[in-house]
Design a protein around this nucleic acid. Structure first.
Lengths: 186, 186
DNA sequence: TATCGTGTAGACCGATCGGTTTAGTAGCGC
DNA sequence: GCGCTACTAAACCGATCGGTCTACACGATA
């Protein structure tokens, strides 16, 4: 039996395993069984092994957010960009059933391994959201606070939703944050 | 050379290793080297191995929160209890330099192993905070939302603070949440 | 048909994993 | 002193770890 994959498929499959198990929890054998990719295939695509897999997965996630969220916030009309952000976030995290890989990596010592991509993901997101709010008329001081608050709320809602095994928490939290951003706006 | 520990010391030491490495990331050998407890000692205190260690650590954390935060919220004068909560939270997480072990366990498949303690920790916290807010005059609908929001914000702020390696984020976030709770109150 | 490049399968490697066992050492009651 | 319990140290175990390697299945090209 033989199934042929492309590297892009491999990245998406591996990403899901890291999301479910964390970096340390995802052993090569869990990765092979869950992705149905043999070790041969995996080391063909990622000669650097597990660390390279994680690095490419982080880059892949970052690219998705850059395209769907950061760039609109940075350049598009702010109200539309913020609306698009909430839609994209809800879709991406599937109402809290999926977690944020980058946030999860930040919590333990895996952070030290991937410090730069983790940091720049969150920095770009907060900066982009702050900029969009400012362009939309939010006072400069408030904009920074609101942006940090929104992103922290998203991360926290993911933790809570999983901890309590209650999908509604994520959507409720998103709804509150959406209103809060809107209410500080012209 | 021989150093003698008590089980309580062992739990606190092991807790710190789990906090730093996560459940899967904390191997028996990292645990022995970081705690300076030999395998003999660890298996003497925790015959059930790693899983028992984690279970007792979770119970230990839960007991601390129950004593310092949940019980005051449930029974004491609400304004004082909420003030005490913010103090205790800031002290416990050391301005974001320490993470929430229970929140971290919730993110990957470790959650399934310890589903009950994880869930009840967050449920008791939100229920207790909601009750305190209600006793203090917050409208019933708002109280639930505010409580969920506050606890999600704390968890999210821990993620963000670590991701950006910026301690000030946690304190700023705590300050905002403190104000938000206060402003929805008589 | 021969060949070449891409990708797959899985046996195999030394190191490390979680866990057990054996052989103690220290402190306390008697 | 003696024995007992509480605790510690480290050698040791099979299983699993991350990673390497060989063999080969294909489609494309010619």
């Amino acid at each position: 039996m033989r199934t042929v994959f492309e590297k892009t498929d491999a990245i998406a499959l591996v990403a899901e395993v890291f999301r479910e198990c964390g970096y340390e929890g995802a052993s090569m054998s869990t990765i092979t069984t869950r992705t149905r990719l043999s070790k041969g295939s995996l080391y063909h695509f990622f000669p650097g092994g597990k660390e390279q897999m994680a690095a490419e997965v982080l880059a892949h996630v970052d690219a998705w957010f850059a395209r769907e969220i950061f760039e609109p916030l940075e350049t598009a009309e702010p109200r539309a960009a913020i609306a698009q952000m909430w839609t994209a976030v809800d879709e991406y995290f599937r109402s809290g059933k999926r977690i944020c890989l980058i946030g999860a990596f930040a919590l333990d010592e895996t952070r030290d391994r991937f410090a730069k991509p983790i940091r720049s993901y969150f920095e770009r997101w907060t900066n982009a959201l702050e900029a969009a709010l400012t362009r939309n008329g939010t006072p400069a001081g408030d904009a920074r606070q609101l942006a940090e608050d929104a992103i922290a709320s998203i991360q926290g809602a993911l933790v809570l939703a999983r901890a309590m095994a209650d999908e509604t928490i994520f959507e409720r939290s998103l709804g509150r944050m959406r209103l809060r951003l809107a209410s500080h706006t012209t």
